[in-house]
Design a protein around this nucleic acid. Sequence first.
DNA 1: CACGAGCATAGTCTTATGAA
DNA 2: TTCATAAGACTATGCTCGTG
Length: 368
Amino acid sequence: MSPADAQRSNASHPAQEAVARAFGAENRARLLARYFDATQTITSTNAWQHVYRLLLWIDRTTALAHCYESDKAQPGRAWYARSLAFHAWVSNALNVSPADLGESIDWLFREAVKDLASRALAIRTAVYEQQRAPYAGRGFPEPGEDPELVALIKEVVGKWMTEEPPEEEFRKLTRRIYVYVTQENKRRNLVGEGFEDVIAAVIGRLRFSDKTEIRSRCLLHDLPGFHAPPPNEKPRRVDLALLRGNHRTLVSAKWSIRADREEQFHTDFEAYARLESAGQDFEYTLITNEFDAARLKAACDRRRQNAPLFTHVVHVNPDAVVATYGEAVRGSATAVSAHVKDGRLMSLEAWLEKFGRRIPDRSGASTD
DNA sequence: CACGAGCATAGTCTTATGAA
DNA sequence: TTCATAAGACTATGCTCGTG
């Protein structure tokens, strides 16, 4: 946190008070501190549970835990069955009923947006009146006017209405619906950077035998043993960097993966390798919550020259992927279950365990 | 404080491929 | 022909930072 950030953040802020940037680094850190301070045990084994409690959410169109693109997860389509299986698996693993899962997950988003809705609906009345004044009396539409949506509502529930609501109330309703629906689009930022934050927070709270320094979204050349890029090249950032002794792990943390974004894995690594200045190996590890078998397979198999691109490919919980695909395993899913079995697709737990055990004295030199 | 550029996050939508 | 999978393109959004 920079001095300016520290100055802005007021320690006496009550938890519910409005914050300037609900999804910003400062507020995420504040919320995560609150969450983890109230959490007794954080272990490699339950790390994935914290990830899901904090970040996983319910897809409103299916009312099931989100694991795949919404359009392919609609009732009757292939991923609806898998979404059901995933929902069942998560509920069971978190020890809540399928009906209550929604209240047990998505903590970070639900906390961050708590006062966003009311702020989105708020109108600075004086300014608003002034803005509309020149057009007064000309029948200009009011904000929230949406005859089609109103017609839809009336069509479905109208017969239960004892009287016709005033137009103004319908405008309030349509505005609230709009805010509610579009709120979902704001999730992406929080999931993405929040994923990095949560992993960093978990690692920071695990008791490793060796001290580990964790940096989020830092510049590559601020890490030991990396050059600054030439002036005509933009500086590189690393999602997550773990430093321990002379051991450097660069982590790419992606909640989900798409083909076009995969290309970046390669160009990022190419830059990292080219700008390496210490003449020593570094790890390049992917952590993801992607559920698509083909994308996971591609990440596991992706190569650079004569070696796998990623030192490790880590999934929040591969058991969830296996359970989601269920019995009907074919195509890429076959390869993925093989990768799970042979450890190429690692669980977050296994990766944290492995990381916690490693002692960086490969050279045999004294660490004193 | 307002504004915009630039970067970054992710999900959604569209098109291509291949198998039944 | 139909459908799921796979690959790729596109979009909605927020934060940070610099500028006026």
